[in-house]
Amino acid sequence: MPNTVHLMMGQKPAPKKVKKKVAQKPKVQAKKKAAKPAAAVLSYRSRTAEDDAFIIQLTRQQLGNIHEQAFGQPFPEEQFLRYIQSGAPTIVIERNGKPIGYYSYLIGPDAKMHVSAMVIDPKHQSSGIGKTVMARLEEEAIRQGVRTLEVFVQENNAQSLAFTRSLGFREVFRVQPNTIGFQKQLATV
């Protein structure tokens, strides 16, 4: 909602004609506080086949150029589609009932969860949603007995590198040609 208070500021009412010269105190208008936007209502659900086009399109949009720059090849859509259709846990993130992103992971026998992807629509980035999603994912991992989270980030993906580090992940290895492996130890219950 646009703030229209500025339209009133700086406009002076027409002076009243008075016989006596009386100094009037200037009226000070209080600025109206902008209403805080309603908190995002996030919900999570398992991916269905109807979500595949959204997931592929969002992934291509957000990671396609990064993948191509890192590996010199187009984003492997068909391979990625086979992965999400393989039964790997893939969770769709919705805000107020509309899909805005997803995450997917695999759990190995060594109590390690590899976060294969976590992608949020750019319109919803930098608003705390990514951190909220990762906190939920960490809780889910702990409930499943996971002790270590792992994520791979391409070294040319500055935004994801900064986000991953801000969550407390530490670089532990590199995979040639351009991938950085990060891990985070989780508190066990």
Results as ranks from 00 to 15, higher is better:
residue 164 T to L: 03
residue 55 I to W: 05
residue 90 T to S: 07
residue 90 T to D: 04
residue 123 K to E: 13
residue 88 A to F: 09
residue 69 Q to L: 15
residue 45 R to Q: 04
residue 102 Y to H: 12
residue 73 Q to C: 00
residue 14 A to T: 07
residue 92 V to D: 05
residue 134 M to L: 07
residue 164 T to I: 10
residue 31 K to P: 01
residue 111 A to Q: 06
residue 176 Q to I: 07
residue 40 A to D: 15
residue 3 N to L: 12
residue 17 K to Q: 10
residue 39 A to V: 14
residue 11 Q to D: 02
residue 173 F to V: 00
residue 157 N to T: 09
residue 137 L to W: 06
residue 87 G to Y: 00
residue 24 Q to Y: 01
residue 170 R to M: 07
residue 143 R to P: 00
residue 86 S to H: 03
residue 19 K to F: 08
residue 180 I to G: 06
residue 37 P to Q: 10
residue 3 N to A: 12
residue 180 I to M: 08
residue 68 E to P: 01
residue 121 D to K: 07
residue 107 I to T: 05
residue 25 K to I: 15
residue 63 L to E: 14
residue 61 Q to V: 02
residue 28 V to E: 15
residue 164 T to H: 10
residue 100 I to E: 11
residue 38 A to F: 10
residue 94 E to I: 07
residue 11 Q to Y: 01
residue 173 F to C: 04
residue 17 K to D: 09
residue 91 I to M: 04
residue 188 T to C: 01
residue 64 G to T: 08
residue 4 T to I: 15
residue 166 S to V: 05
residue 170 R to L: 09
residue 176 Q to A: 10
residue 97 G to P: 02
residue 44 Y to M: 04
residue 47 R to I: 00
residue 20 K to A: 14
residue 19 K to W: 03
residue 59 T to M: 01
residue 85 Q to R: 11
residue 80 F to H: 07
residue 143 R to H: 03
residue 44 Y to G: 10
